[in-house]
Design a binder for these strands. Sequence first.
DNA 1: CTGAAAGCGCTTACAG
DNA 2: CTGAAAGCGCTTACAG
Lengths: 350, 350
Amino acid sequence: MKPVTLQEIADRLNISVTTVSKALKDYPDISKKTKALVKEMAKTLNYRPNAFAVNLRNRESKTIGLIIPEIVHHFFSSVIKGIVAQAEKKGYLVIILQSNESYEMEKKQIQLLLSQGVDGILISLANGTAEYNHLTDFMDQKKPLVMFDKIAKIIKCSKVIIDDRKAAYIATQHLIDTGCRRIAHFRGALLPQNSIDRFLGYKKALLDNNMPYDPSLVYICECGDKSFEEGKMNARQLLKDHNDVDGIFINTDMVAIGAITEFNEQGVKVPDDISVVGFSNWFMSSVISPSLTTIDQPGYLMGKTAFKCLYKEIKQIKNKQPVVFEKIVLDTALVKRKSTKEALPQMEQI
Amino acid sequence: MKPVTLQEIADRLNISVTTVSKALKDYPDISKKTKALVKEMAKTLNYRPNAFAVNLRNRESKTIGLIIPEIVHHFFSSVIKGIVAQAEKKGYLVIILQSNESYEMEKKQIQLLLSQGVDGILISLANGTAEYNHLTDFMDQKKPLVMFDKIAKIIKCSKVIIDDRKAAYIATQHLIDTGCRRIAHFRGALLPQNSIDRFLGYKKALLDNNMPYDPSLVYICECGDKSFEEGKMNARQLLKDHNDVDGIFINTDMVAIGAITEFNEQGVKVPDDISVVGFSNWFMSSVISPSLTTIDQPGYLMGKTAFKCLYKEIKQIKNKQPVVFEKIVLDTALVKRKSTKEALPQMEQI
DNA sequence: CTGAAAGCGCTTACAG
DNA sequence: CTGAAAGCGCTTACAG
């Protein structure tokens, strides 16, 4: 069974393709009678417009691309869900690609999406990305690109993020408020803006509380798919290097869970010996023991917001309006659980 | 900057569009010299074929659709990752849609994908799906559809699954081998084939071991996004109803984690008082305490395999070869952890 | 070895 | 109110 075309409908009704096309789209210059006839025939034949032809004419695909470092990831999968849900509402479909934290992949994927003719791109940068020509190339095609979570400050485009520095500050402050006096930090890789910002928030909290910043207390994790093992390893190393540490602020939950697991295995008590604060609020963090105090990061909302932002720009470009870039900062929240102690009463008054 | 077309290249070189097209595709009837010239010009101008036009001509989009019940889900996100990775290798892009376990959504999404002109569909059925016209409609367009994990036995198409019944049998047998004598089951929703099969595997293991099957020991979970709470609730109810139960086989890990959490909170010792076996081997299951004995379900491999299968059928249809449906059953494995006891020596000899 | 022409299915400016 | 015609960018059977 060949797909039904406008031509087929036109032939059956003995009218022109033009009229059929207009009737289906409710052009005002077509008579009611004709419209009814056409629509009925279209229904009977189960007519479905050929998307390729429509796309070719209209120069839009109603499809967007999404490039994300990792799919099997509580936070990112929540973002995906938000994007897909919001896109569907607006009649847009989402093509997903995983960069695997690789710049090369990311570059290739942008090209792929460009070739496919997506109307826009949503991207969270790979750790390995330090050059941005692939992004500007895309934008040079007069197509919008919106970054979320892992962004490049230097690129002029809309961004949806959280205030990583502030959130990290609050996390570290919480450790201080609950009595920690020597606080380590397991940071993320060196390049990504959010691991830099979280590190800076940690440092600032220390300084604001007159606590010395000690670089030897900062450990690095790549935060790829080996996060759990990295957390364990770093925790082991930390115990060897510094037996006086009583708190750690960790760049991401999965690493924190690795660290807690290591502490549990070594008989180090959390939070009595060492308090731990994570980042992201993965579901898992609420069910391990002790449950993890962490920063809640609104993944689903971030996805929804990022799509809305992209959608707005697609419309603006289509209507030849000027595109105004936005920087949207979403709220985070400290989720207190059992991996940190109760706040000291005297400290709260300071 | 307008996109570069074949016409543009042709004009600049003073040759025909036909020749340009053929040169770029290395037709043997074009001279080496012309090919070199054309390719160089294409490179200089950064030519990129218009996908819509190519699609329209070739009647294929190099795009497939993926419909999945839930994106934020360890198992399903692993499947997505496998599909996307394998598809990219073959030059295919993947459009993702989430059915939210709803039949209505699923139906709408199939239509959407059909309108979009995808070359095939990969689907894991929603719990709510009991009618299959939307699936057969799609296949009537001479486009392949492959089901994975949550399938409908009755539909004639390729399927990639695990042997749920066997895996459940092994899980239950493990409970018996480790000394459990009164074993409950938290099953999934009533419709999905895999929750039926897991239930049947449980039942068969009991009967093969001369243990009575007691329907009052079977509890139902929808296994949607409330899985954790369902696990807790069912565990609470179970404790009230049956204080003699010493083992539970649970349809999916997230529910099992809920149950274990409830037991921990109530001071019921796992595995000493009650042993628990889950299903799926979510990462989380290895880090909770006690860690969860479960069935490892190969999500990434399932995704990869499902795409390969779909790809094969796309090619078969394109080449007008007969399409042979396959049923591919992937291996699972029992992962023994701390939520079950050591096997009893005397039992092992039986 | 090269190119004119038809056609994929649709949309829309224009004529009547 | 209706329709002929052009055109979106590509591919390929066919002619020369």
